[in-house]
Design a binder for these strands. Structure first.
Length: 808
RNA sequence: GCCGGUGUGGUGGAAUAGGUAGACACAGGGGACUUAAAAUCCCCCGGUAGCGAUACCGUACCGGUUCGAGUCCGGUCACCGGCACCA
C-alpha cells in the first residue's frame, strides 16, 4: 500500500478538528501545565512564508512531546493584525483595513491548519478585534492613572513618507524601519510611556529568567546602564551648564564644552550670542540631517563656536570656549559634553579640527598622537591638583566625592533606554482613549465606555499636517468631557503595533473574558509562559516592551509573576537558495503550500526541522526536500517488513534505546536536526537487521511529534489504535533503559603519538592491558611499532588508546 | 567604530567535558530490478600519490598549550546580525 499523504492528512486534520485533542484545560490539577509560546504572525497579504513554519513546527514538536509526557499543554495561536502594510494596502485599493485583515487571517488560518499544528484554535485571538483591544486600551488607561503615560512636546523622528512619528527604536540606519524613507527630526506633541522608570528592574530581573545568553546581552546593552557623575559648569552670563561624564577624573583636562544643537538654552541665549545667525544655521542643518547623515560625517567633526558667551571651569575658574556640535546627542545625558581631548577620541578629533588645546591629565599614552582612553591602573593622574599620583581607578571616586562635597556635582546613573513614543498619526491602530477638555485638560475615557471603537472613515491616508485620518471625523472627535460634561475633543492618535503584542500571551489564557484582560484564576494557573521562542529581530523591542507591560501589570495586581517568560530561545532565519534573504523582489520566496502539495505537510514539517541548526540561519533548497520525503516513505514501508513479535528485538535493542535517549534529549535542546538524523539511522538499522512490531511501535511514537498525520494512520493500520484505544499522540512518551543503550563490545581507536594507526574491537570497559594486547595484535599497529619502544600509554575508556613511542 | 555571532567535503550540516573529523542527508558515480523510465534496493563518494595494502595533507589564516586541538589560549582575515558620535 502506498503512502497517500494527501488523503491521510485530510483525514486526520478533519478528525482533530472534531475531537479537539489539543484543547488546553484551565485549572486541570491532575497534570502539570506547560505553556509553549511562539510569536504570533502578522497576517500579511502574501500569506504564509516558508520562514513561519520553522519556529511553529519546533514548538509544535516540543508541545506534542510534553503532552505525551503527561502535561496539560497550552499551545495557542493568534494574529498581530494592526499595522502599516494592511493600512497601505487599504489606502491603495480603497478597501477597509478590517476587510483586508479578515481575508488575510482566513488565509493564514487555512495554511496553518494545513500544516497540522496542535494549536488550541478555540483560543485564537486577533489584536484588531474590539473585544481584544478593549483591554489594550484598558491597560493604557491604568498606565495613565499610574503616571506612566504622559504627553509631551519633544523632537521626534518624523518619517517623511509615512507622515508619522517613529520610536527611536524603529529607526534603522536613519531611515524608517517599515518604509525605508528618510527620517528627520520634528517637534510634536506625543503620548509617551515611561519605560525608563522600569529600567533598573528590566535589567536586574534578567538574572531570574532562563534566556539564551545573547538575548540577555542584547537586553542589557539596550538598557545601557552607566554610572557616572554630573558636573555643574557655569556660563559667563551666570547660567548653569550641567554635563554628564563617566570620566570625572579627567575634569582638569577639560578645554571646552559642547552643546547639542537641540539644546533649549541656545534659544534662550539668542540675543547674547554674537554669531547667532551662524549658530542658528548650524542648528537648522543638524535638524534636517537624519541620523544616517550625521553618522556619515562621523570622521569629520563639525560645529560652531559661540561668540559672546564662554564657559567657566567649576574648579579652576578658567574660561573655556563653548561649541555647538551634532556629535552631542540631546537624548543622552544632559545634552552637554565636557571636552577632554586628551582622553576621549571623539573629543580629540574635535579639538584637533578646531585647534583647541589638548591637556594630558593621565600619563601612559601620547596625547599629541591620539587620545589615551585606558581607564584601569595603567595610567597615573598628572596636571590634576589633588588627584596627582593616583590611578584612574582611584581618581574617579575621589573626584566624585570632591564635586559632591563642593556642591558642584553629584553621582548619576544614566540609561541608554529612552521613554517609549506611543502615539501614531495613523488609522489602523487602537484609538488612544483620551479626551482633551479646555477646562479639565486630558481626561481618560471612562472604563465602562471601552472599547473605544475605531470610527469608519472614507480615506485612510494621514492628513498633510501629519494628523491621523480620524481627525477628520468631526462627529467622532467632538465629544463631551467625561469629567465636566463640557465640549471636548477626542485624541485622534492611535497606538503603535507593539501595543497589542505587549500582552497577548496573557489573553490566550482566558481569551473570551469580558470583565478583565485575564482572570486571576487563569493567570495563576497558566502563568508564566514556560517557553517562548521567537526571532532575534524581536529580542530588543518586543521583548523589552512586553516585559515592561508585564511588570506594570504585576504592580497593579493583574499578574502574579514579575517576568512574563520563564525561558526564551531564538531561531535563525530561513534564507533563499544560495544564502540570500528571501524577498519578493529577488523572486526567491518559497510558499509552504507548494511543498505541501508536492510532498505533504509531514514532509514539510520534517524537512524544515532537518535542514540545519535551529538557532542559525539556513538556506532553503527545494532539491533537498526529497530526502525527507524518502525517509517518510521508508518508515511507511516498514509496516510490511515488521514481524508480529510485540517485543523490541534483541538485535535492535541497543539502537532503539539509544535512539529514545537521543531523540528525547535533542527535542528538549531544540536540536531537531540531530533528533531526525538519529531516527533515520534507526530506520537504516531496521532495514539492515529486520524489525518487530515492538520496534515499529517505538519508531511511531518517537516520530509522532514530527510527522503526526502519517504516524496516526500507521498506528491505526498496524492495530495499535485498536489495541490501546488511543491515538499515538495520546500515548506515553517512550522511556529508555540506560543499561540497554550499551553494547557488549566497543570499537576503540589506537593512536601512536596522537596519530590514528588502527581500530580494535574490545569488550566494554576493557582495562589498559587488554586494550594494549588487542592493539599489538592489530597488523597495522604492529607494523608501526616495529623498532619502537612504548614509553607511555594513555587510555581513554571505551574511546581510544594512545601509545607514546621512541626508537629502541 | 563598538557589541554579539559564525567560518568544517561539490552542497545542507554532524562531532556531551580536548579523544577515531565529515554522523545524517542532498547532489554525483556504479550496480540490481525493469522492454524502458520513474520508484525501490545495494555499493562508492575530503585532497594528493599509488594497481593496491598504505603514506602524507586536511575543520578561514598565523602561532601557542597538550600525549592528543574543529573544540582551549594569543593574533589576523572574511562574512552575518545588532547598535552607533552613549561622553
Amino acid at each position: 500500500m502506498k503512502y497517500d499523504f494527501a488523503a491521510i492528512e485530510k483525514k486526520w486534520q478533519q478528525n482533530w478538528e472534531q475531537s479537539k485533542p489539543y484543547a488546553a484545560v484551565t485549572g486541570e490539577t491532575d497534570k502539570p501545565k506547560f505553556y509553549g509560546l511562539i510569536e504570533f504572525p502578522y497576517p500579511s497579504g502574501q500569506g504564509l512564508h516558508v520562514g513561519h513554519p520553522r519556529p511553529f513546527t519546533a514548538m509544535d514538536i516540543i508541545t506534542r512531546k510534553k503532552r505525551m509526557e503527561g502535561y496539560n499543554v497550552l499551545y495557542p495561536i493568534g494574529f498581530d493584525a494592526f499595522g502599516l502594510p494592511t493600512e497601505n494596502y487599504a489606502i491603495k485599493n480603497h478597501v477597509h483595513p478590517a476587510i483586508v485583515t479578515k481575508k488575510n487571517i482566513e488565509n493564514f488560518t487555512s495554511q496553518l491548519k494545513m500544516l497540522g499544528y496542535g494549536f488550541d484554535w478555540d483560543r485564537c485571538i486577533d489584536t484588531t478585534d474590539p473585544q481584544y483591544y478593549k483591554w489594550t486600551q484598558w491597560i493604557f488607561l491604568q498606565m495613565y492613572k499610574h503616571g506612566l503615560a504622559y504627553k509631551t512636546t519633544m523632537p521626534v523622528n518624523w518619517c517623511t513618507s509615512c507622515k508619522c512619528v517613529l520610536a527611536n527604536e524603529e529607526v534603522v540606519d536613519g531611515v524608517c524601519e517599515r518604509c525605508g524613507s528618510p527620517v528627520v527630526r520634528k517637534e510634536k506633541s506625543q503620548w509617551m510611556l515611561a519605560i525608563t522608570k522600569y529600567a533598573e528592574r528590566l535589567l536586574n530581573d534578567l538574572d531570574e529568567v532562563d534566556y539564551i545568553e545573547r538575548v540577555k546581552t542584547q537586553q542589557r546593552n539596550w538598557i545601557g546602564k552607566s554610572e557616572g557623575t554630573e558636573v555643574d559648569f557655569t556660563a559667563t552670563n551666570g547660567d548653569k551648564l550641567t554635563v554628564y561624564t563617566t570620566r570625572c577624573d579627567t575634569l582638569f583636562g577639560v578645554t571646552y564644552l559642547v552643546l547639542s544643537p537641540e539644546h533649549e538654552i541656545l534659544k534662550k541665549w539668542k540675543d547674547q550670542i554674537v554669531n547667532w545667525a551662524e549658530v542658528e544655521d548650524y542648528m537648522l542643518q543638524a535638524a534636517r540631517k537624519s541620523d544616517l547623515e550625521r553618522t556619515d560625517l562621523a570622521k569629520d567633526k563639525s560645529g560652531v563656536r559661540l561668540q559672546g558667551i564662554e564657559g567657566v571651569h567649576p574648579v579652576s575658574g578658567k574660561h573655556i570656549p563653548i561649541f555647538v556640535s551634532d556629535y552631542v546627542l540631546i537624548t543622552y545625558g544632559t545634552g552637554i559634553v565636557m571636552g577632554v581631548p586628551g582622553h576621549d577620541q571623539r573629543d580629540w578629533d574635535f579639538a584637533t579640527k578646531f585647534g583647541l588645546p589638548i591637556v594630558e591629565v593621565v600619563q601612559g599614552g601620547d596625547v599629541t598622537k591620539e587620545a589615551f582612553t585606558i581607564k584601569d591602573d595603567t595610567g597615573i593622574m598628572v596636571n590634576s591638583g589633588f588627584l596627582n599620583g593616583m590611578t584612574v581607578r582611584a581618581a574617579i571616586p575621589a573626584m566624585k566625592q570632591y564635586v559632591t562635597e563642593k556642591g558642584i556635582g553629584r553621582p548619576k546613573t544614566n540609561y541608554k533606554l529612552r521613554d517609549w513614543v506611543f502615539s501614531r498619526q495613523r488609522y489602523w491602530g487602537e484609538p488612544i482613549p483620551m479626551v482633551n477638555c479646555p477646562q479639565c485638560g486630558w481626561v481618560p475615557v471612562p472604563e465602562e465606555e471601552l472599547p473605544l471603537v475605531l470610527p469608519q472613515v472614507e480615506n485612510y491616508e494621514p492628513t498633510d499636517d501629519g494628523e491621523s485620518p480620524i481627525s477628520k471625523m468631526t462627529d467622532w472627535v467632538n465629544t463631551k468631557c467625561p469629567k465636566c460634561g463640557g465640549k471636548a475633543k477626542r485624541e485622534t492618535d492611535t497606538m503603535p503595533q507593539w501595543a497589542g503584542s505587549s500582552w497577548y500571551f496573557l489573553r490566550y489564557m482566558d481569551p473570551k473574558n469580558d470583565t478583565a484582560p485575564v482572570s486571576p484564576e487563569a493567570e495563576r494557573y497558566w502563568g508564566p509562559v514556560d517557553w517562548y521562542n521567537g526571532g532575534m529581530e524581536h529580542t530588543t523591542l518586543h521583548l523589552l516592551y512586553s516585559r515592561f507591560w508585564h511588570k506594570f501589570l504585576y504592580d497593579i495586581g493583574v499578574v502574579h509573576t514579575k517576568e512574563p517568560y520563564a525561558k526564551r530561545t531564538s531561531h535563525g532565519m530561513i534564507l533563499g537558495e544560495g544564502g540570500e534573504k528571501m524577498s519578493k523582489s529577488r523572486g526567491n520566496v518559497v510558499n509552504p503550500n507548494d511543498i505541501v502539495d508536492q510532498y505533504g505537510a509531514d514532509t514539510m514539517r520534517l524537512h524544515i526541522m532537518f535542514i540545519g541548526d535551529f538557532e542559525k540561519a539556513v538556506s532553503w533548497s527545494n532539491e533537498a526536500v526529497k530526502g525527507s520525503k524518502r525517509f517518510l516513505d521508508r518508515c511507511w514501508n516498514l509496516m510490511e517488513l515488521a514481524t508480529d513479535d510485540p517485543e523490541i528485538s534483541e538485535k535492535n535493542m541497543a539502537t532503539v534505546h539509544r535512539t529514545i535517549k537521543k531523540v528525547s534529549a535533542d527535542i528538549d535542546e531544540l536540536k531537531m536536526n540531530t533528533a531526525i538524523a538519529a531516527l533515520m539511522a534507526m530506520v537504516n538499522e531496521f532495514y539492515a537487521n529486520g524489525l518487530t512490531h515492538g520496534d515499529l511501535e517505538v519508531l511511531m511514537l518517537l516520530l509522532s511529534p514530527f510527522a503526526p498525520h502519517m504516524v496516526e494512520e500507521m498506528w491505526e493500520l498496524t492495530g495499535f489504535a485498536a489495541q490501546y484505544g488511543k491515538m499515538a499522540m495520546q500515548m506515553p512518551w517512550p522511556q529508555y533503559d540506560e543499561a540497554k543503550t550499551v553494547e557488549s563490545t566497543v570499537e576503540m581507536a589506537v593512536q601512536i603519538k596522537g596519530k590514528l594507526r588502527g581500530t580494535v574491537t574490545v569488550p566494554v570497559d576493557s582495562d589498559e592491558a587488554a586494550v594494549l594486547a588487542a592493539a599489538k595484535a592489530n597488523e597495522r599497529v604492529a607494523k608501526s611499532l616495529e623498532g619502537m619502544e612504548i614509553v607511555k600509554t594513555i587510555l581513554v575508556k571505551n574511546k581510544l588508546i594512545n601509545l607514546i613511542v621512541k626508537p629502541c
